[in-house]
């Protein structure tokens, strides 16, 4: 009983933090567009975004499990966009941009090998322990 109360309280706190961030964003965008948003609108948007994050988290977890991995990688995230081609294009661009930025940071790493390499921190730890 006490643990569920604590969990509920934690969820409320996280929602409040999200509410604050979303509120800041909406207020700023509204100022740009000469609009206004009711507090109820921000609250409802917060609820929507929170639910979306929760669903995303569960999806990602299941995707990586299905792939036989314990760590979620970028492929799992790309799988989120499977029903929306335009969204996939955008995230692909973002991914390429991130990869090229990383490639510039440590020049010797090949972009293709990079994703695999980063997906294995747990695995390599075991390997080292054996050797």
């Amino acid at each position: 009983m006490a643990s569920t109360d604590a969990a509920a309280e934690k969820e409320e706190r996280l929602k409040s933090a999200l509410w604050y961030s979303i509120g800041q964003f909406v207020d700023e965008e509204c100022l740009n567009d000469d609009l206004n948003a009711t507090p109820q609108f921000i609250g409802a948007l917060t609820e929507l975004v929170y639910t979306q994050i929760a669903n995303t988290a569960r999806d990602l977890e299941v995707f990586s499990k299905h792939g036989g991995r314990k760590v979620i990688n970028t492929d799992d995230v790309m799988l989120l966009t499977r029903r929306n081609d335009a969204l996939e294009t955008m995230l692909k661009q973002e991914l390429d941009r991130m990869k090229s930025a990383e490639g510039r940071a440590d020049g010797q790493a090949v972009a293709g090998a990079h994703g695999k390499k980063r997906g294995r921190p747990a695995g390599t730890g075991k390997g080292k322990a054996k050797a």
């Binding site: 314990k70 979620i72 970028t74 991914l95």
Partner: peptide, 10 residues
Amino acid sequence: TQIQKGAMNL
């Protein structure tokens, strides 16, 4: 469950 940094950014 863990998540890569790159995936997190995405």
